[in-house]
Deep mutational scan, measured.
Amino acid sequence: DEIHIHFNGVTIEFRGLTEEAKKALEEAIKRGASEEELKELARRLIK
């Protein structure tokens, strides 16, 4: 299970995320999180 985020022309790929983690990332994107914020969020979620 993986998710691809297209962000300002950059694709960020995450693997092994739970549904909750995906929802958290989607919410962050909707509120306009920066690419760095998304990566940091993903790091926290994957652990």
Rank of each mutant, 00 (worst) to 15 (best):
Leu45Ser: 01
His4Phe: 09
His6Arg: 04
Glu20Asp: 09
Val10Asp: 05
Ala28Thr: 03
Ile46Asn: 13
Ser34Ile: 03
Arg31Ile: 05
Arg44Cys: 05
Ile29His: 06
Phe7Ser: 03
Ala42Lys: 01
Leu38Tyr: 01
Thr18Lys: 07
Lys23Arg: 11
Ser34Leu: 05
Ser34Val: 03
Gly32Thr: 01
Arg43Tyr: 14
Ile5Pro: 01
Gly9Lys: 02
Glu2Ser: 15
Leu17Gln: 02
Glu13His: 15
Ala42His: 06
Glu2Arg: 13
Arg44Ala: 09
Asp1Ala: 13
Glu37Thr: 05
Gly9Glu: 03
Lys39Thr: 13
Val10Asn: 08
Leu38Gly: 00
Glu35Val: 14
Ile5Tyr: 07
Arg44Leu: 13
Ala21Leu: 05
Ala28Ile: 07
Arg43Asp: 07
Lys39Val: 14
Glu27Val: 07
Gly9Cys: 04
Glu26Gly: 06
Glu40Tyr: 12
Leu17Cys: 04
Thr18Cys: 09
Ser34Gly: 08
Glu37Trp: 11
Arg15Gln: 11
Leu45Met: 09
Arg31Asn: 10
Arg31Leu: 10
Glu36Arg: 07
Lys30His: 09
Thr11Asn: 03
Leu41Met: 08
Glu35His: 11
Phe14Gln: 01
Ile29Glu: 01
Gly16Trp: 10
Leu38Asn: 00
Leu41His: 00
Ser34Lys: 04
Thr11Ala: 04
Glu35Trp: 14
Ile12Trp: 06
Glu13Phe: 15
Glu20Lys: 08
Glu2Met: 13
Ala33Leu: 10
Ile46Asp: 05
Ile29Arg: 04
Ile3Val: 10
Val10Gln: 10
Leu25Glu: 00
His6Phe: 08
Glu27Leu: 14
Lys22Ala: 07
Ala24His: 09
Glu26Gln: 11
Ile3Trp: 15
Arg15Thr: 11
Val10His: 11
Gly32Trp: 05
Arg31Ala: 12
Arg44Ser: 07
Lys47Ile: 15
Lys22His: 06
Glu19Tyr: 14
Ile5Arg: 01
Thr18Ala: 07
Asn8Lys: 04
Ala21Lys: 02
Glu27Tyr: 15
Ser34Met: 04
Leu25Asp: 00
Ile12Phe: 04
Ala21Gly: 13
Ala33Ile: 13
Leu41Gln: 00
Glu40Ser: 11
His6Ile: 13
Lys39Ser: 06
Glu2Trp: 15
Leu38Met: 09
Glu26Asn: 09
Lys30Leu: 11
Arg15Met: 07
Gly16Arg: 04
Lys39Gln: 11
His6Val: 12
Lys22Gly: 03
Glu35Ile: 15
Arg43Lys: 06
Glu13Val: 15
Glu36Gln: 10
Lys30Ile: 09
Gly32Asn: 05
Glu37Ala: 05
Ile12Arg: 00
Arg15Phe: 13
Ile3Pro: 06
Ile29Thr: 02
Phe14Leu: 12
Lys47Arg: 11
Glu2Asn: 12
Leu45His: 03
Glu26Ile: 13
Arg31His: 08
Asp1Arg: 09
Asn8Trp: 07
Leu38Ile: 12
Glu2Cys: 14
Lys30Ser: 12
Ser34His: 04
Phe7Pro: 01
Arg44Pro: 00
Glu2Lys: 13
Lys47Trp: 15
His6Cys: 10
Val10Ser: 07
Thr18Gly: 12
Ala33Lys: 02
Glu20Gln: 08
Asp1Ser: 13
Leu17Trp: 04
Leu25Asn: 00
